[in-house]
């Protein structure tokens, strides 16, 4: 095996994601929605290498039994469950949903969403701050889905969020990282980990988020809506690792004009006066 197929894994050592003093095995967080079956979900989640998976809290359907088998599978696979408050349009609904999620998961982690508008699913940051205040007080480990707005991010951190999760683009849009400059400013504005949540469409988007300096990426549709979700899950895993490594390695400066990689001198047919080797 050569270096291309067997990279030295020690290059990626000692780089675990730590949020609020807790260590996470993967920087890729994945959702569990929109898959064709529980088996496909299982295979995609395994391929992603994620340890944290998001779930939604919904009223039980008295006729539908599928939901229970998804929950059972997630417990069987020992994923860390991150209940979300998706679909909540008020702080109050989000708070109630978070409490129900905690009762189900037995964990204090919540992906807090307070949605402002059905068409864009952009966060209602006023409601988000309100719900954050209450849930932090109740001991929740609040991971807030927020705008790529550095000011809101700072307020969320001030309220006690151990990380912030700004969007890259609208949920489920697959548009990629729409505002890398805002994200960079946001990352420089807060001292906690930043997880880019929503908007990723394919592997390069995830890599870009990580190269920008994100501490992790959370995605659902990019994997679930791929033609081959399991393969895409694995691609995302590699992309997150690649982007992270590139960020740690430190990219070269960009320049407008070329800068040859091969020596300019000593090419055959050079006029004598330009002979690099100085052989007259």
């Amino acid at each position: 095996m050569n270096a291309a197929t067997s990279p030295d894994s020690s290059l990626n050592d000692n780089d675990a994601l730590v949020i609020g003093g807790r260590t996470f095995a993967s920087r890729l967080f994945v959702g569990t929605g929109k898959y064709a079956s529980v088996d496909e979900t299982r295979n995609a989640l395994r391929a992603s290498g994620a340890s944290v998976v998001t779930v939604a809290v919904r009223r039980v359907d008295f006729k539908e039994r599928g939901a229970a088998s998804l929950f059972g599978m997630l417990l069987e696979e020992k994923f860390d469950l991150l209940p979300n408050t998706a679909g909540c349009y008020t702080a109050d609904d989000a708070i109630r949903t978070a409490r129900l999620g905690r009762e189900l998961s037995g964990s204090d982690m919540v992906k807090l969403e307070v949605i402002g508008d059905q068409k864009t699913l952009f966060p209602d940051v006023v409601g988000l701050l309100e719900a954050t205040k209450v849930l932090v007080k109740e001991g929740f480990f609040v991971l807030p889905y927020t705008n790529d707005d550095p000011i809101t991010a700072k307020k969320l951190v001030d309220l006690g969020c151990p990380a912030v999760m700004p969007l890259g683009a609208p949920i489920g849009s697959g548009l990629g990282i729409r505002n890398p400059y805002n994200l960079r400013i946001l990352m420089e504005s807060v001292s906690v980990p930043v997880i880019v949540d929503a908007g990723v469409g394919t592997a390069s988007d995830a890599a870009i988020a990580m190269e920008l300096g994100a501490d992790g990426v959370l995605m659902n549709t990019a994997i679930a809506a791929a033609k081959d979700p399991v393969r895409m899950a694995f691609a995302m895993r590699l992309a997150v690792d690649a982007g992270r490594l590139a960020h740690r390695a430190g990219r070269m400066e960009k320049r407008l004009y070329a800068n040859a990689s091969s020596p300019l001198q000593g090419t055959i047919g050079s006029s004598r006066g330009h002979d690099a080797l100085g052989i007259e």
Binding site: A56, R58, F71, N220
Partner: peptide, 10 residues
């Protein structure tokens, strides 16, 4: 009463 469980979500 609200009786809820987990379903797939992102």
């Amino acid at each position: 009463l609200e009786v809820v469980s987990f379903v797939g979500g992102g």
